[in-house]
Amino acid sequence: MHPAFSVIFFTVASGAGFGLISLLFIADVFKLGGGFSREQLVIGGLIALSLIVFGLVSSTFHLANPKNAWRAMTRFRTSWLSREGVFAIAFMPLALVYLASIWFDAPSWLRETFGFLAAVLAWITVFSTGMIYACLKTIRQWNTPLVPANYLALGYASGSLLLLLGAVYARLDTTPYIAMSALIVSIAAVLKAIYYFWIRSPGLTPTINTATGLTRAKVKLLDAGHTHGTFLTEEFGFQIARRKASLLKIVVFAVGFMLPGLMLVWVFNQNGGPTAALVAVAAGIVGAAVERWLFFAEARHVVNLYHGAQRC
């Protein structure tokens, strides 16, 4: 699949934003590390919301006809893309009420109810983002429950690193934030490792024989029937060399998981402080972006069977 940068930016940014606000709610309820002040919570919430909004806006850049984008809310009953949009929009007022009830010192039941609802909606929205890809039977690298699991884990990992950065700047006790980040980042790393292991073996997938129905003999493509590229070769023809993919997987693990982990240790040992937390956030987000690029680059659509692939 052709990796579209607007979609990569969208999924990474909005995933981090949704992760940040959900974990901010947990930090608020349990007063982790002494608890953020009122202003700090609201600033953190607004950073999360702006990540989500920038992400949603950038996702419309890959539309060829964005004037009809508002119609994407209408097929909630069947389309995960539609559901993602509806949930993201339903999340906004809940999150805003939550932040407002923090700002205006509303009764704690109101604040906690709306915080909880916003956190649940955030979870459902990121799940829907993953399901956009996971529901496609045409791409075996995507058609697995590990995809929404990876989207959630990586979004929450980026969010937890952002929250740790906030805790360092707010001079809170960072131990609970370090523990939270360490747990979520290691879950994300393990899930990603399972995913990379899983997609290595093809399993029961269409072949050039089932694609042409000529199942009793070897089949090969003689001519694809077009002189230059087509929409199909542009959108689905992208191929990544196996060696380059392996190298990028090392980058994902080294930059996306190992480096933030190392920085957590630094923050815990009181070396570096804000700088280490900042490096952790930057590395986590760069790692997630490389992971997302690879997620698209490694996906092989079955239409490639009509352009020369023997199996997908």
């Binding site: 060829a64 006809n65 009809n68 039977k137 791409i139």
Partner: peptide, 25 residues
Amino acid sequence: KCMGCNYCSWACPYGARELDRSSGT
């Protein structure tokens, strides 16, 4: 009604759908 998101072309295994760059649909 089409907004040109290409999602339907991803769902089609037969390569039947093509985006027209001029109309964006």
